[in-house]
Design a protein around this nucleic acid. Sequence first.
DNA 1: GCCGTTTTCGGCCCGACTGTTTTCAGTCG
Length: 580
Amino acid sequence: MINEELAAVFDEIAVLIELGEDNPFRARAYANAARTIRSLPEDINMMEANGSIASVKGLGKELRSHISEYLASGKITLKDTLVAAIEPGLIEMLRINGLGPKRIRAIHEALQIQSINALADACRDGKVAALPGFGPKSAANILKNIEFLQEQQAYVRLDIAAAALQSVIDELKQFPLIKMISAAGSVRRRKEIAHDLDAVASVAKEEDRAAVMDAFTHVSAAQEILAHGLTKSTILLRAGIKMDLRVVTEDTFATALLHFTGSKESNVALRSLAGKAGMKINEYGVWRGEERLDIVDEAGVYAALGLAYIEPELREDRGEFEAAANNILPNLVTEADVKGPLHCHTNWSDGAASLEEMAEGARALGYMYIGICDHSQAAAYAHGLSPADAARQHKEIDALNRKYGAAFHIFKGTECDILKDGALDFDNDTLASFDFVVASIHSAFQQSEEEQTQRLLRALSNPYVTILGHLTGRLLLQREGYSVDIPAILSAAGKRGVAVEINANPQRLDLDWRWHKTAAQLGVYLPICPDAHTVAGLKDVAYGIGAARKGWLETKHIPNTWDTETLRQWFLKTRSAARG
DNA sequence: GCCGTTTTCGGCCCGACTGTTTTCAGTCG
């Protein structure tokens, strides 16, 4: 995808400018351009050809000329010039916490250090401590942060982050001086991976803050105190994740929560909007001129700016302010809207629970139905079902459905492998025996983008495919997804009436939420599928809901928020439409 | 490098914490 490639080059240029010169705003312009390009609704080649690129905010004359150069030649000369002028080791050093461009340049100019390892040595033998503006504590901190960088993962998955954050919050809730406490940061925004954890707490009186901070820095999960102030402290949890707590008085809790929920980009945009309206917003309140407004909750902050309430998941500066101003924000799907989980495994293939246990698990969660999708025969590693196995499983499902009657329904599905050439792993007669078919790739990940795209397009042309499973095959922080032309697949899926799942397993969250809005605009339905292999795995639906909300989705986009009969009709329609 | 109801120059979100200073720069979120 050319937009992503170009955005990546602009990100690199932003970093190079940060290290190379003193104008942070120029670097920011490139970083903003990268973000803008990532959220463009269409191929940038097209937008350049039809001239619509000229009206995109944040892409001025200079940036547009770089874009033209890249589209014509595949490179940007400015980047080569910057690369030639900067030691590659310095870019690496930006990853060291507490070390920014200014101090990296100072160290490099004084000591000619070019790598992180050389920097660690210079910290150990006192050379860094002797530099003007540095001292023994700076050197020790840099060394500590280098060690942290080399030992720890910089990010953790949402499920791990959310659990760690909740356990600290639960512990702090026992502390009587804390009046209110809430998760904030990227976990509250339901981002798929987290860099660190944030929480905001309120106290009745300013003098209570010190005791609260003492409690926080000594919670049972704390391993080390990294910063300890009256309003902000940072600890390192034993799980290897950093956590910030902000403590404010009750009258500033709403603005503090808004501020520390972020994202940074949405805060910048919000404050810029406030400035234009003659107002000022910070974590301590909202001012119109000299007057501090009486704000009781986050909605009050948005209302003061004439905006509808923006849910935390949407706060990424991806068009939510414009939608809030025009009162056209989406009516976001909620967990309570989901009527049943599709794409669930049983011990017929690689699941841990029986068919009946999975059905009972879904019933216990209040669902109206469940879609069972065990693996197909090619997935030998997962004990994939043969056509005969599938027929026997269907008899068991029929028996259970007779027992449940109108109270609950099990839909017969399969997670059918898409073979290397794009053919499906079952013949059409077998596929026709299921209510719906999830088609997924589980092999030959190394094919080129062109091959992988053709493979998926061929699978899409099979009239029995209802849903494409985990479109890119990514495993967050473990494995990149295979390369595939996502817009081409979404466009074809929309035309053909095939859905693309939001795999709700927190290791996957695939299709990525950044594509959801585009997919919905192309007419693609996006069911939330837990890919559950255990009864407990059914609860992963919550992560899928988080992703769908980040992707601006409503119930009309998500078939498994519909009732049993509507879903059944949709399965039938998808199939008959494809057969003409 | 971008932008404009304070419009072609001068801003660009804004405050906390740390370490090194002795009033502030750098970094972070």
